[in-house]
Amino acid sequence: MNIVGLDSLVFGVDDLDASIRCLADYGLTCVERTPSGAVFEALDGTSAVVRHASDGGLAEAFAPSPNIRETIYGVADQATLEQIGAELGKDRPVTLGSDGVLRCKDDSGIPIGFRVTCRRPIDAPPVLINVPGMKPQRPVNQVAADPAMVCTPRSLSHVVFFVPDVAKAERFYTERLGFRVTDRFTNAGPFLRPAGTLEHHCLFLIQAPAHMFGLNHFTFHMADANELMLAGWRFQNKGWKGFWGPGRHIMGSNYFWYFNSPFGGAIEFDADMDLHDDTWVPRAVDANAETSQTFLFDYRPLWSPGGKDH
């Protein structure tokens, strides 16, 4: 099934102002603000939607608030949407909303939706680096380090859930929706890639006790490591509490920087994820500190070696 990735994540929160401030500080663009919530977009039109947990328009909560309330995938075309509707309609209620979203629940009970993707071409300056031994990318006399550089997340990357039965959860996505397992943490769960993208994962599932069911984290893609570092550093300077990073994952190779958030799980910046096709043979390792990252740093404030006396 030609699912291209995540289109939108919908959250039900208990502190709407803090959540809106979080997404604004994160760098997304607010495209809709009403008393009941807001919609924030990345450069390609993918989005995070935030509403008060009591909002009647939200999908039913499956975990205490704040938490994620709905995960909406983008599909390539109307035919794919109809294909998904026919497949999932075999054994569960599926509804088509006036917003064009086909809605149901996955086999864990997580509300999911599908729509013809909103993704649009990204209009942003190219990221150009100079590497010895390779043809230079950045033109002569064009500088790279710009303290005023705007860092707008480019695209919704992935979402991660704690689920009570990871094997059952995985089967739903692989057998019913055609997702591929790209890699696996044997003590946690699978990284999953839908057929319409080569990106390592847009979904990662973590086996957890039933009382943990819900959001683990979500992230948008930044342009590259440089932009991730700058965006994360600014985010922390604005008062958001770091959780993990910056560092670089091994599974997926994405750079990462996680922060605590008012959404019920962590909010991450990521960049430079691996691409895989169907010839890739999934790796399987235990998740631990060594297998989770190639390196890890902590934030620190600006500093200079100048000192008073040089």
Binding site: D14, A18, P66, N67, M212, K241, N260, G265
Partner: peptide, 26 residues
């Protein structure tokens, strides 16, 4: 890990619970 999402933000909005804003523990 530390619980708060910003300086001093350790409670839920209603002030009834301490919340860890990494993974939502109450």
């Amino acid at each position: 890990v530390a619980l708060e999402y910003r300086k001093d933000m350790f409670l839920n909005a209603a002030g009834t619970d301490i919340v860890c804003y990494a993974h939502g523990a109450h």
